[in-house]
Design a binder for these strands. Structure first.
Lengths: 146, 146
DNA sequence: ACTAAAAATGCAAATGAGTTGCAAATATAT
DNA sequence: ATATATTTGCAACTCATTTGCATTTTTAGT
């Protein structure tokens, strides 16, 4: 009973999100968004595909959906390394960043957002040899009228 | 005369850098480092290959060299998008970050390094709809003794 | 609801940046 | 100068992601 109710709530929430972004409501889209809401990644496209119930959809569909979600900013991609794009639900109320271990590749996240504060907080967590990558993405003056 | 002298200086500087990183001195390595010192990227592996004088080396060698340079931190990679890794000489005295235009993909760089300051400075430069990606890379506690 | 038009999906095939194996060439150390 | 180790070129390969097209599902209009 409780779980049915809970699923109905997920369904409603997910449909709302898709409508907000003007994306049509399809089974694969709903399943992927629900997964990303329930489990907090970041996950690769392949991990997402594997986490979906068998026969939910083709792997190609996962790629297509994720691309659309990124375009509509429903989902945020992180580019840690070559061939390592990880996706996460984009919740503006839980803005955060990640740290990846160079060796074991485990990813941890933190909610600080000023660089020096961050480095201190990461050092306290036991990380050594910390580097960072900071990239901004925007629309330049020249492209604003096109 | 002046240009020969200048080239000799480049040669010396480049050899010094390679030795510092304990990399053997080869023609392709020297050429790639010299290019990255002379022109400030960031450049893709392909761009680098094309900028090298014809027949300097194979494209595979460019990939191999760049990977070694990244490993030894002689060069810094930026991951703006999937399949878009850009390389730059890593000069600790000119620490900076980039902004890419979502539309035209032109890359600009800036030297501020506190997030709010940065966003203000980018807005002054005329960018709109600014997002950022900040990732940290380090060695976690568990991996420090392995 | 019913139907036509639009959009999304599955499958198979293609793409393409980056990697790998191996023999030949080059660099390093003694 | 010679032996050993490293790097390079070439060709073939890999593998995540994309694309084309026929089929299915969704949406919007009546």
């Amino acid at each position: 009973m409780a779980s049915i109710k809970k699923d109905i709530n997920w369904e409603t929430k997910v449909i709302e999100l898709l409508k907000e972004k003007k994306l049509s409501i399809t089974v694969p889209r709903k399943m992927i968004i629900r997964l990303l809401l329930k489990e907090h990644g970041p996950f690769s496209a392949e991990e997402i595909y594997n986490k979906l119930p068998k026969n939910t959809c083709d792997q190609v569909t996962v790629y297509r959906c994720l691309n659309q979600f990124v375009e509509t900013q429903l989902v945020t991609p992180s580019y840690f390394e070559k061939e390592m794009v990880l996706f996460e639900f984009n919740d503006p109320h839980h803005h955060h960043h990640h740290i990846i271990c160079k060796i074991c590749k485990k990813i941890d996240s933190f909610h600080d957002c000023i660089l020096n504060k961050i480095e201190t907080s990461l050092a306290k967590k036991g990380y050594k040899d910390i580097q960072h990558r900071l990239e901004f993405i925007g629309v330049c003056g020249a492209c604003q009228n096109s």
